[in-house]
């Protein structure tokens, strides 16, 4: 079966596009002043990530990324913004305490970035092209309910915490205590 002429370059180009999408989305999400654009950037970033998963031979994960992160998470965030955000973000002077927090978070993220870079550059990567499973739904289902059943169940704990948090917030507003 012959392939598209210059198919390698085309694939490379698509891969580059996906990476660019991811990075651009992330940058938009972080840098834009309007929150709604930030969420749009997040959605774009998720789309790029889905593309990366697709390149890693896991279409199931890629589609789940789209379904959950764009279809559910981003939509919920936008919904929240819509009900709460003022028209224009205020560009006023920030209080001193907030600056400390900014500095602290910058420090923490720099540390995490450095750690990740260190890990990426110095650890031994598994040889490329090893495909653990064929990425089919059946394989994923079996893996989730056997090998990875503990993390799978732990996720439900996260959901429980989230529900409890939501209940606390909602009740707090209602009783005015």
């Amino acid at each position: 079966m012959s392939t598209l002429p210059l198919s390698e370059y085309v694939v490379l180009g698509i891969f580059g596009l996906i990476v660019a999408t991811t990075v651009a989305g992330a940058l938009i999400a972080v840098l834009s002043r309007r929150m709604i654009r930030g969420v749009a950037g997040l959605a774009l970033c998720s789309l790029g990530l889905a593309g990366l998963y697709y390149f890693l031979n896991s279409p199931f994960l890629a589609l789940m990324e789209v379904l959950i992160y764009i279809g559910a998470v981003c939509v919920t965030i936008v919904f929240g913004i819509m009900l709460s955000e003022t028209d224009e973000p205020e560009a006023g002077e920030k209080p001193a305490r907030e600056r400390w927090w900014t500095a602290l978070s910058a420090l923490v993220s720099a540390a995490i970035f450095w750690g990740l870079c260190h890990l990426a550059l110095h650890s031994a990567w598994p040889s490329a092209g090893v495909q653990a499973t064929n990425g089919s739904v059946r394989e994923i289902g079996v893996a989730l309910l056997t090998t990875y059943s503990l993390p799978f169940e732990l996720i439900s704990l996260v959901l429980l915490v989230a529900i409890l948090g939501a209940l606390t917030l909602a009740r707090g507003g209602r009783t005015k205590s």
């Binding site: 379904l67 764009i70 279809g71 936008v78």
Partner: peptide, 23 residues
């Protein structure tokens, strides 16, 4: 292989688009 999932995942973007249009 995951055609049905594809339909539903991209179908869910539709909401996002409508919402951004409105906003």
């Amino acid at each position: 292989d995951v055609g049905l999932l594809l339909v539903f995942s991209f179908g869910s973007i539709n909401v996002m688009a409508l919402m951004l249009a409105g906003w």
